[in-house]
Simulated scan of single mutants.
Amino acid sequence: MMKKYLSKLILLLIAVMLPLVLTSTLEQHILFLIVIWSIAGIGWNFIGGYAGQVSIGHALFFAIGIYTPSALFHLFHVVPWVSMVIGVILSVICANLIGIPLLRLRGPQFSIATMAVVECMRTILINTKVLGGSAGIDFLNKKVNPYLYMQFTNKREYYWVALAFLVAAIAIASHVDKSKFGYNLRCIAGNEMAAESVGINTSKYKSLAFMLSAVFVSVAGSLYAQYLLYIDPYISSTMSVSLMIVLVVVMGGVGTVYGSIIGATVLVMISQYTRIYFGGTGTGIDLILYGGLVIIVVLFLPHGVMPLLERCVKWIAALFFKKKAPVTEEAEVSEAEKKGAVN
């Protein structure tokens, strides 16, 4: 147990020190995006990974998380630390309200319904002038306290703040993974009718998982808004955002605690570097390569990258740290009997 916690502490220290080693703007930008999509992926994993309800509409909660601190700062000059909490509350209320009808659906019907909700949200944001409409909101203010209003001049600060939220998300996800709540969600994902037959209130547990996932995705959206300091409906509430959240979990490993981090690392690096090296051609080669690489990984790693990494770690540990068991007297006698039987 001590080795387990020590290894996690070492990984955390490495994560904290990364922006001090990777000093370029691009590298720190990639680090921040990895953390943001990891938080969103951990949130989606509660409903999509554990409960087995594939939602393609989590851009709704991402948009609420983005717009709440942005609009409150733009209209009333509310600090983002407070407005972020308000965004979480609004996301939970929204998840509860839309979850009542949507979670009655199963399979593809549920996924399609969540897609429709995102499109409705995008249309509302485009036509709401108070929230900037299609032009969006620019809420940069250089005169405010950077730490109070989360408007830093260096990307490292954004990364460290987001990393703190990621650590909290991992701690909560680890607790849920081993709790009765997590086991009940897995039972629902396996067979919902069987779960109901053993006394699990499937509607209640699916609703709780939906609301819990909305919390993390909303936080990720709020942090992303503070990083950009500009928002519009095309950044926050499009199908590409929802698909990115889903792909992060699928790529890393559905139903795992750390799979979202692995998936976010793979996807963000592929998307950013293909855009950098091939995006300037103007022919969409970066998008073709990005989509092709994602398809290849999903086809050849159907359970995600995380199980493969776990097997590699176990193989390396067995190769370098496996000790030969001490030979007892009983084992020596047994070995001698075997040799005698052969002779």
Rank of each mutant, 00 (worst) to 15 (best):
H175F: 11
A325W: 06
L31W: 11
V217R: 06
A195L: 06
L267K: 01
I231Q: 07
I86Y: 05
L308K: 09
I98M: 12
M1L: 05
S218I: 09
I262V: 14
Y50F: 14
P69C: 10
Y205N: 14
G57E: 03
M2F: 14
H58E: 10
T265P: 04
P307K: 02
I34S: 12
L11C: 14
P307I: 02
D138E: 05
W81N: 02
Y230W: 11
G65V: 06
L212D: 08
G282F: 00
T256D: 05
Y227P: 00
V246P: 01
I188E: 10
Y234L: 14
G252P: 12
A59M: 07
P80E: 04
V198M: 15
K178F: 07
L97I: 14
S91P: 04
V219K: 04
S222N: 06
A40D: 08
M84H: 03
K339L: 07
G87I: 03
V248K: 04
S91L: 03
P108K: 06
V198Y: 07
G280H: 01
V219G: 03
Y258H: 05
V257Y: 03
H58Q: 13
K323E: 15
M121P: 09
K3T: 09
S91Q: 07
H77Q: 13
Y5W: 15
G259M: 09
I231V: 15
Y234F: 14
V54S: 11
A169K: 01
N145K: 08
Y5H: 09
V78M: 05
L309N: 03
M2A: 13
H29F: 15
E310W: 12
T123H: 10
K324E: 13
A162K: 00
G107C: 08
V294H: 02
I64D: 11
S236E: 06
I126C: 03
G132D: 06
V88P: 05
M17A: 15
I42D: 03
F32K: 14
R156H: 02
T283M: 06
D177G: 10
I124R: 03
Y50K: 09
I93H: 05
G133A: 12
N45I: 01
L22K: 04
M269R: 06
M306P: 08
A63W: 04
S7C: 07
G199V: 01
S91A: 10
V241L: 05
L212Y: 11
F139T: 09
G136E: 11
V313P: 00
F62I: 11
G41I: 09
K322D: 08
E196A: 13
